[in-house]
Amino acid sequence: MDVYFSPLACSLSTRITVYEAEAEDSVRLNRVNSKTQTLADGTDYRTINAKGLVPAVRADNGEVITENAAVLQYMADTFPKAGLAPAAGSIERYRLQQWLSFVGTELHKLVFNPLLSPKSNDGAKAYALEGAIERFDYLNSHLEGREYLIDHFSVADAYLIAVLNWAQFVGIDLAKWPAVAAYRDRVSARPAVARALKEEFTLYQAA
């Protein structure tokens, strides 16, 4: 299986998933240059994912899957012994999908994309910061008294920690939401997560 990533992008969640599943021997991690959209060997990444976005997974049979929520569930189902997603069709699986959707739409796209994009104007950034308050209030309320988004660590947590990592780059102080800040610290300390964060920070800084 080939996994395509860019350092500290949302594809960080796929690296976390690989390490949580102890699947390093089954997965090839391929870096995508986010500026040129090429791989290390010069291959145009858009020949693999026409959208040019990470992450993407290319299965051993050549099938390509894109969009983070789909990629993460595919990887969880490929390595089921890791227990990173509830059984398909169960109510717990729909809860997982609920949180993948929340992280992807309410945090990733609505809050962080405008704050991280150099194309965003001041109005867009102000709107994103205003929207962040309500969404982090909701997340904080959910995480009070909980270890993870659902009843155990899942690929939704891998996605959320990748997104929360961006707060430091856009001036969002998670200390305003104590349960979120505690969650970030707790999840970041997991061996697989800490390893993935360290490796991708190193790759990002070396770019």
Results as ranks from 00 to 15, higher is better:
1 M>T: 13
2 D>W: 01
11 S>P: 10
11 S>W: 07
13 S>Y: 01
13 S>N: 03
15 R>Y: 09
17 T>V: 13
20 E>F: 05
21 A>K: 07
25 D>V: 06
26 S>A: 15
27 V>S: 08
28 R>P: 05
29 L>V: 12
30 N>F: 13
31 R>E: 06
35 K>V: 06
36 T>D: 09
36 T>S: 15
37 Q>L: 13
37 Q>D: 02
39 L>D: 10
39 L>T: 15
40 A>W: 11
40 A>L: 14
40 A>M: 14
42 G>S: 09
43 T>L: 14
44 D>Y: 04
46 R>Q: 02
47 T>H: 10
48 I>P: 11
48 I>Y: 14
52 G>H: 05
52 G>L: 08
53 L>Q: 14
54 V>W: 03
56 A>S: 14
56 A>N: 02
62 G>C: 10
63 E>W: 00
64 V>R: 06
66 T>F: 09
67 E>D: 12
69 A>I: 12
69 A>P: 14
70 A>D: 04
71 V>I: 09
71 V>G: 14
75 M>L: 15
78 T>M: 15
79 F>S: 07
80 P>I: 11
81 K>V: 15
84 L>Q: 04
86 P>F: 05
88 A>N: 12
95 R>E: 05
96 L>S: 14
96 L>P: 01
98 Q>I: 02
98 Q>W: 12
99 W>C: 05
99 W>H: 08
100 L>M: 08
101 S>N: 11
102 F>N: 04
103 V>I: 14
107 L>P: 00
111 V>Y: 00
111 V>P: 01
111 V>R: 05
112 F>L: 04
114 P>K: 14
115 L>M: 11
115 L>F: 01
118 P>D: 11
119 K>W: 12
120 S>H: 07
122 D>A: 12
124 A>P: 00
125 K>C: 04
127 Y>D: 01
131 G>D: 04
132 A>E: 04
134 E>C: 03
134 E>Q: 12
135 R>M: 07
135 R>P: 09
136 F>I: 14
137 D>Q: 10
138 Y>I: 01
141 S>Y: 02
142 H>F: 08
144 E>P: 00
145 G>S: 08
145 G>V: 05
145 G>D: 04
148 Y>S: 12
149 L>E: 08
152 H>T: 13
155 V>W: 00
156 A>M: 10
158 A>N: 11
159 Y>R: 04
159 Y>H: 15
162 A>M: 09
163 V>G: 03
165 N>I: 10
166 W>Y: 11
169 F>I: 10
171 G>P: 00
174 L>S: 07
178 P>Q: 08
179 A>S: 15
179 A>W: 06
180 V>R: 03
182 A>M: 06
186 R>L: 09
186 R>P: 01
187 V>H: 05
187 V>S: 05
188 S>Q: 05
188 S>E: 07
191 P>T: 06
197 L>A: 03
204 Y>Q: 06
206 A>G: 00
207 A>C: 02
